[in-house]
Computed example of a mutant assay.
Amino acid sequence: MKKSENEGVQNFLEEIKLVDADKSNMLIEIRDIILNTFPKTKEKVMYGGLVFFLNDEMFSGLFLNKKHVTLEFSTGYLMEDPKKALEGKGKYRRHLKILTTEDILNKEVSFFVRQAV
């Protein structure tokens, strides 16, 4: 896990390990994909999860739920989604529900993250 420069984010990451280790590991793996794809990303704790910014524009968020991790995309409605993996019917946002570590690969998280900016 890449240590965050933001103390609030680092505390959040450490606390979620105590709450649910499995979902925490999924969230951290997805976070690493985002940070490796966009190295200049800034992250903050907001809305009960982690949100990601590039050039002061929020483009994604990660949230822990009881049964899954949600990866949200601010402009998900613009994304290519040939397998119809994205969920949501809002005007702009779309999300992926990640239930297992295998979903990170099966739902092609990297493919969607690359489209997020």
Rank of each mutant, 00 (worst) to 15 (best):
I28F: 04
V45M: 04
E14D: 13
F53D: 03
E108N: 14
E7Q: 12
N25C: 08
G76M: 09
A116P: 03
G88H: 07
L18H: 13
N11R: 15
K17N: 10
K66Q: 15
I98N: 03
L99K: 14
K66S: 14
G90Q: 12
D103K: 12
K2Y: 03
G8N: 14
R94A: 11
S74K: 15
E14N: 14
E57S: 11
N36Q: 10
E5H: 08
L62I: 07
N25H: 05
L71G: 07
I30Q: 07
N6S: 03
K107Y: 03
T70V: 10
F112G: 10
I104H: 13
S60L: 08
N25G: 10
D81T: 01
H95C: 07
D32W: 00
S24D: 11
D32H: 03
L62M: 09
E57G: 01
L18R: 15
L64S: 06
M26I: 15
K2D: 03
A85I: 04
N106A: 12
F112E: 06
L13P: 01
F53V: 04
S60D: 03
V117T: 11
K66F: 06
G8H: 11
I33M: 03
E43H: 07
T101D: 05
K97G: 02
K83G: 01
S4I: 01
L64A: 06
F112S: 12
L64Q: 13
E14F: 02
L71C: 14
M79D: 05
M1H: 04
D32G: 00
E15V: 02
N6M: 01
K2M: 07
N25Q: 14
P82R: 11
S4H: 01
V19R: 15
F73A: 13
H95V: 04
Q10G: 09
E5T: 10
E29S: 15
I33Y: 01
E15L: 04
R94L: 09
N11L: 15
E87C: 08
L50Y: 01
V113L: 09
S24H: 12
G76H: 13
A21N: 13
T70Q: 13
S110K: 15
L50F: 06
K40D: 14
V19L: 14
S24A: 15
V109P: 00
M1F: 02
N6Y: 01
V51T: 10
S4Q: 00
V109Q: 13
R94H: 12
H68E: 03
I98H: 09
L86V: 05
S110Y: 12
M1R: 05
N55Y: 10
D22W: 05
N11Y: 12
L64I: 12
L96S: 08
V109W: 07
K3N: 09
D32M: 00
V45C: 03
L64C: 04
F12P: 02
S24M: 06
